[in-house]
Design a protein around this nucleic acid. Sequence first.
RNA 1: CGAGGAGUAGCGCAGUUUGGUAGCGCGCUUGGUUCGGGACCAAGAGGUCGUGGGUUCAAAUCCCGUCUCCUCGACCA
Length: 474
Amino acid sequence: MAKNEFVKDIADIEEDFPQWYTDVVLKTKLVDYGPVKGTMVIRPYGYAIWEHIQSELDGRFKAMGVENAYFPMLIPMSFLTKEAEHVEGFAPEVAVVTHAGGAKLEEPLVVRPTSETIIGHMFGKWVESWRDLPLRENQWCNVMRWEKTTRPFLRTSEFLWQEGHSVYETGEEAEAETLKMLACYADFCKEVLCMPVLTGRKTEKEKFAGAVATYGMEAMMHDGKSLQAGTTHYMGQNFAKAFGVQFTGKDGALQYGYTMSYGVSTRLIGALIMTHGDARGLVLPPPVAPFEVVIVPIAQKKEGVLEATHVLKQALENAGVRVKLDDSDNSPGWKFNEWEMKGVPVRIELGPRDIEGGKMLVCRRDTLEKTEFALNDAAAVKELLSRIGKDMYARAKARMESRIVPAETLDELLAGVEGGNFVRAGWCGDRACEDKVKTFAQATARVFDETHTMSACVCCGKKAAHTLFFARAY
RNA sequence: CGAGGAGUAGCGCAGUUUGGUAGCGCGCUUGGUUCGGGACCAAGAGGUCGUGGGUUCAAAUCCCGUCUCCUCGACCA
């Protein structure tokens, strides 16, 4: 069968990955563009994925003792300027409200690009004693960053995310929480998005504006580029000092708290699309797929067919499976292609032949493999969904690992990233070398590699102080 | 922000060079036949040509401005 014989509507994933991505997110109705530059509408099929991400992550946060809250979207401009590095990092991309109620405002209001400042301000009011700590809150909200170039899910002017913010009595505790949340994210990516990530600390150049240390998780996209899928930040006392987050300690002395923050966004949807997608379109991980199973009736006007599909749907729903029954007037072939493009993990074909034989034809989206199951065997379908998730993770992991290559020279590094790889390389620790790699290979340091040791700096050849993963990044 | 491309029916496009009745395919609606990998027949509906201004008897078409999107680069928690 010729490649893409049935896929006439989307670009070839190998030849034009950026166009493939844009085609897929629009044609599967995950998103549409909003009328204002860089804004997107997340349509029901896309929003359902976000809701599954939210509920899964939210449960994990709550299990760790984090509480949800909501802080205002508008932040006084003066807050932003209280932390020197923070304002320098964010000032170029904030949107500012200067007029309201028909009059010019006394003080301009920033539309939050992130909420460290306003949450720092509020935490400063609430924290008085060591007994008030730790204070651990999270909010699900939108933020705005006026980016110059945008792409649905990956970088938009407004996006949805969660941002967690904690204050601890000691730096050790806050830093431990920073690592714990990073591990929480990585586990979530594995179990829920079936997506492997590299985790680790980021360089000074790549860290959050105002942080002491930033940790990130990086996922490998289909084209070998890296996507920062989530970050956690240890702030030390930087924000506590800027916003007066002070408490009286056990020893009676007044002292500043230690803060940290962590966030993931709707970018995760872009990440899973670019990790798992193929020539036919989306391949959704079962845990977040709006529908885990689509039932396609064959010869649906023949007696007994639709009735049988309803019985099957009920049996699956009783087992806790999310099911779509496509009883529209489109032909079966049209439906096969449509739901494959939309990435539904499992398709079940049910026609007169199957009903007669007490069977159903089950097709996996990830491998396109078709198998006969006993009719209405929901337990077997559940087991298959679970296996699909594990297989998707295993394939993505094997792929990522096979595309991590070492480099000892800039030329090797360039060849590595041009070949769509993550490159492991030594680094002397000098910012000038990091900058030179960027210029020479259009690749940036993603995270520190704590598992391997390269001996010499890939750029200057001096003794390496660290080993880094370099990649081209979205 | 720089370079390139695009905006005409829900989607994909032609028409713009050379100004003169708004077109095609798919989709949509209705009726019928179909249904195991993008079915078929018949009859219909659907447009201030992104937007503002200008030139002209006359603008989708020519001129100026502006908005949005796509690709690449620069920038980017």
